[in-house]
Simulated assay, not measured.
Amino acid sequence: MSRTAASFFIFALLSGIFHLFLTQDRVVTLPLIACGVFCALFLLALIAGRRIKFDPVLR
């Protein structure tokens, strides 16, 4: 996992936890939206990291 993917994962985790501490209702808040954005960026970073680092024949 790249540093970028790890940082997006940590940001998503922290914003999700912050949303849970912020409210008990099922409302959409800014930390919840940020959690969704960071999760999407985390998945994109994982996919991009695989495409860049994958080289079956090292020459």
Rank of each mutant, 00 (worst) to 15 (best):
L20S: 09
I10A: 13
A40T: 03
A12T: 00
L22M: 11
F21I: 12
V37G: 05
L20C: 10
F11R: 06
F18S: 14
F11N: 04
H19Q: 10
T23R: 11
T29M: 02
V27E: 14
D25V: 07
L32T: 05
F21M: 11
K53G: 11
L32P: 01
V28I: 15
F42T: 02
R50N: 05
A40L: 13
T4W: 11
G49Y: 03
F21L: 15
T29A: 04
V27Y: 12
R26M: 12
R50M: 05
L14D: 02
L22A: 15
A48G: 10
P56V: 04
F8M: 03
L22G: 04
I33L: 15
V37H: 04
L58E: 14
C39W: 08
A34I: 01
A48P: 03
I52R: 14
L46A: 12
C39H: 07
F38T: 00
R26Q: 10
H19E: 05
K53T: 10
G16P: 01
S7F: 15
P31G: 03
F38Q: 01
L32Y: 05
G49N: 11
S7E: 14
A45I: 00
L58Q: 15
A48W: 11
L44K: 05
V27R: 09
T29R: 01
M1P: 08
I10N: 03
T29N: 05
F38D: 00
L43C: 07
V57K: 08
R50G: 09
A40I: 02
C39R: 03
S7L: 14
L41K: 06
T4F: 12
A45L: 01
C39P: 02
F38K: 01
L43K: 04
R3P: 04
T29Y: 01
Q24T: 12
F18I: 06
G49H: 07
A34K: 02
I52L: 15
G16C: 05
Q24N: 09
C39Y: 09
T29D: 04
V27N: 05
R3I: 02
F21A: 14
F11K: 06
L14P: 03
H19L: 04
L46Y: 13
L46K: 13
L22W: 15
A45G: 03
F38Y: 08
L44G: 07
I10M: 10
A6F: 10
F21Q: 09
L13P: 00
R3W: 11
T23F: 06
R26V: 14
L46F: 10
R51S: 08
R26E: 09
L30E: 08
L30D: 06
C35I: 00
T4Y: 10
V37K: 03
G36E: 00
G36W: 00
F42G: 05
F18D: 08
D55Q: 11
L30K: 13
F42A: 08
